[in-house]
């Protein structure tokens, strides 16, 4: 297959630096883990059921572990805390 490029295919003049596509915060895919965490948390408080609070904590950890864009998500977390 390498026979097809006999000469150097590189063209430094045509190089363009990478431009990261901008994604609006509301377009990000919704993490289901955070949602489940909230549901379990509310259930834990409402019914005073310990296991559900623990599950909330576990799913909270999962949602933190799955953060894609740190700045964006931290912003959301801070907002949620407030």
């Amino acid at each position: 297959m390498s026979s097809s490029h006999t000469n150097d295919p590189r063209q430094p003049s045509a190089a363009r630096p990478y431009v990261a596509p901008q994604v609006a915060p509301q377009d990000l895919p919704v993490g289901y883990a955070g949602f489940i965490a909230v549901i379990f948390g509310v259930a834990g408080v409402m019914f005073r059921y310990k296991l559900s609070s623990w599950l909330a904590l576990i799913f909270c950890a999962q949602s933190v572990a799955n953060m894609r864009n740190i700045e964006n998500d931290l912003k959301q977390v801070m907002m949620a805390m407030m």
């Binding site: 295919p9 590189r10 063209q11 430094p12 003049s13 045509a14 190089a15 363009r16 630096p17 990478y18 990261a20 572990a65 799955n66 953060m67 894609r68 864009n69």
Partner: peptide, 19 residues
């Protein structure tokens, strides 16, 4: 370029026929 824990991106440019 690392995006999250599961996505990595690699970019290359400067070749004939493509941007």
């Amino acid at each position: 370029l690392k995006e999250g824990q599961t996505t990595f991106k690699f970019y290359a440019s400067g070749r004939r026929f493509c941007q």
